[in-house]
Each structure stands twice: as structure tokens, then as C-alpha cells.
């Protein structure tokens, strides 16, 4: 039981790292980016390729799994995404679905359609018993990393100048520009960091979530649930939503394998009907 809870928390943490970039682009910048999962996939493949082809150690690949998607995200934001901020949601949906299709096919072409396996270092394998609970070492590792990231993100957003500028830029870009804030730069940086985090999440999650070219499509709905259900006024909302979703999914698959997905989707619909602003958002 507690093991399931533990696994669920690890899974939820992972989902949060994967989705928090989307929480910002979609929640704050109001851009429906269905292609977010493609950046996560990019991170996963960076790690897989570096480890399996070049024999790099797992830990050493993680920074690159962040940096590469971040730069890809930055480049795309500057060239394509920024033209679409003002466009209709339909356009944004179509555009980002197009990107997903391209990413899926391109990865399929370059890497093949099979699952990518990565070999975790020995010290992350196996389970230990803590207080009578079976605890996976790798999942503890994930919880630790993701926990640190959550705290750091929260601090950046609430305490730093960048955070306050981002909030200003999002609230009213024109006013922010008037105050001398470089809105374009802020958005680009945010987008890049969000993409990078997704990449990192993809790398960390390769072992748990699996990694193949259909990754962006398979997990798109999960990311969207985290953001829409969590609400977007804070990052605590998506964080709690991630944990709930993670625990519910793991528990659901364990106890009622035939109904798991069904329950999650139904709950999502119910939440969206009752609280269109998200479960944890104050009504605006």
C-alpha cells in the first residue's frame, strides 16, 4: 500500500517536472502548446543516445537532457511560437499538433519505433526497506531531484526579479513593456527553461514512463490534465494536481487495472465542469 503511495508520489513529481513548463506557457502565457511532450521526448532521447551510443554515465547526460531541449525550445520560440501568441487557440492547437506529428515521425525515422532502454547505474537499482516500506532507490532519487526543482522554481517565481518580471509581463505585456521590461526575452527564457525541464523530465522518466516516438501523444493528455485541473495561477496547483494524478494513476493501475484510465478521464471532465478555472485556483 505505502509502496504504491510512494511510487505514485514519484510518478507525480515526475509529471510535475514534465508539465510545469506547460503550466507557464499555457497557464500564464495563454498559449495552447500541445507539442510540449515533444521537448520531453527530446530530453529522453538525448540521454538514451548518449548512454547507449557513447557510453556516457547516466548522471552526466542529465544536464544535456536539459540543455538541448532548452535550446531547441528557444530557437523555436524565437522563430515560430512568438508569431502565434496573439493568434486564436485553434491556430495554436493546429500548429502544435503539426509539430507533434513532425517530431513523432522524425524520431521514428532517425531512431526507429522501438522502445529505448536505458541502463541505470547500479547504485540506483533495486529497493531498500525503510521503516518497513519497500522503497525503490531510483524513485527516491527522482523524488529528491524533483523536490529540489519544485522548491527552486517556487523561489525563482516568487522571490527573484525574474519572477516578478515574468508575472508583470504575463499580466499585461503592454504595461510591462512600458516599464522597460523586455517581454520578448522573458517569454523566450521562460519557454526555454520550460522546454528544458520537460527534457529533464523525459530523461528521468525514460525508465518509468517508457520512451518511444509516440511519447508526445501518449502523455499529452496527462500534461494537459495537470495544467487544467491544477489551475494556473500558482505552481502549487499543478504540483498538487500532478501528485494526485500520479498517485491515482499508479493506484488505479494496481487495484482496478481495467478502470484506471476511465476514472482519470471522467474525474478530469467532472473537475473541468465544476471548476473551469482548475481545482486549486481561486475563482477570478
Amino acid at each position: 500500500m505505502l509502496t504504491i503511495l510512494f511510487d505514485g508520489i514519484a510518478y507525480g513529481m515526475l509529471l510535475f517536472v514534465l508539465a510545469c513548463g506547460l503550466a507557464v506557457t499555457l497557464g500564464l502565457m495563454n498559449f495552447v502548446n500541445l507539442a510540449h511532450g515533444a521537448f520531453a521526448m527530446a530530453g529522453g532521447y538525448v540521454t538514451a543516445v548518449l548512454m547507449n551510443r557513447y557510453g556516457m554515465p547516466f548522471l552526466a547526460t542529465l544536464p544535456l537532457a536539459f540543455i538541448v531541449p532548452a535550446f531547441v525550445g528557444l530557437a523555436l520560440e524565437r522563430t515560430l511560437y512568438k508569431q502565434l501568441y496573439a493568434r486564436s487557440h485553434l491556430d495554436q492547437v493546429l500548429f502544435s499538433i503539426g509539430l507533434v506529428f513532425m517530431a513523432v515521425a522524425a524520431v521514428d525515422y532517425a531512431m526507429g519505433s522501438q522502445q529505448q532502454l536505458i541502463q541505470l547505474p547500479g547504485w540506483l537499482q533495486g529497493r531498500v526497506e525503510v521503516l518497513g516500506i519497500q522503497v525503490g532507490l531510483y524513485r527516491s532519487f527522482i523524488i529528491a531531484i524533483c523536490g529540489v526543482l519544485v522548491v527552486v522554481l517556487q523561489l525563482i517565481l516568487s522571490k527573484t526579479r525574474f519572477g516578478s518580471r515574468l508575472r508583470a509581463a504575463v499580466d499585461d505585456p503592454r504595461v510591462a513593456r512600458g516599464l522597460g521590461i523586455n517581454v520578448g526575452l522573458i517569454f523566450a527564457t521562460t519557454f526555454a527553461v520550460g522546454s528544458g525541464l520537460a527534457g529533464l523530465g523525459g530523461a528521468l522518466g525514460a525508465e518509468i514512463l517508457g520512451l518511444d516516438p509516440t511519447f508526445p501523444l501518449k502523455f499529452m493528455i496527462y500534461f494537459l490534465i495537470v495544467v487544467t485541473v491544477g489551475g494556473t495561477t500558482t505552481i502549487t496547483g499543478p504540483f498538487l494536481a500532478s501528485l494526485i494524478l500520479g498517485i491515482a494513476d499508479v493506484a488505479g493501475k494496481y487495484y482496478v487495472p481495467s478502470l484506471g484510465a476511465f476514472i482519470i478521464y471522467t474525474l478530469m471532465i467532472v473537475v473541468l465542469i465544476l471548476r473551469p478555472q482548475g481545482l486549486f485556483a481561486r475563482a477570478r
Binding site: L26, V32, S88, H89, L90, V93, I221, L224, I225, T228, S258, L259, A261, F262, Y265, T266, M268, I269, L272, I273, P276
Partner: peptide, 28 residues
């Protein structure tokens, strides 16, 4: 009645959710 309220995004999610639920039912 589910798509009368909310923003484009909620409509998108709700319609998507309905299709997923049906898919899940058909699967099970």
C-alpha cells in the same frame, strides 16, 4: 451541456476527455 461553459481550452479538454472515456469503455 459540457461544452457550453468555459474557455476554448476547457472545451478542448472536455471534448478530448469524452472521446478518451468512450475509447476506454470500448476497450474494456
Amino acid at each position: 451541456f459540457l461544452v457550453l461553459r468555459g474557455t476554448d481550452l476547457t472545451k478542448l479538454m472536455v471534448t478530448l476527455g469524452v472521446a478518451l472515456v468512450l475509447g476506454e469503455i470500448a476497450n474494456q
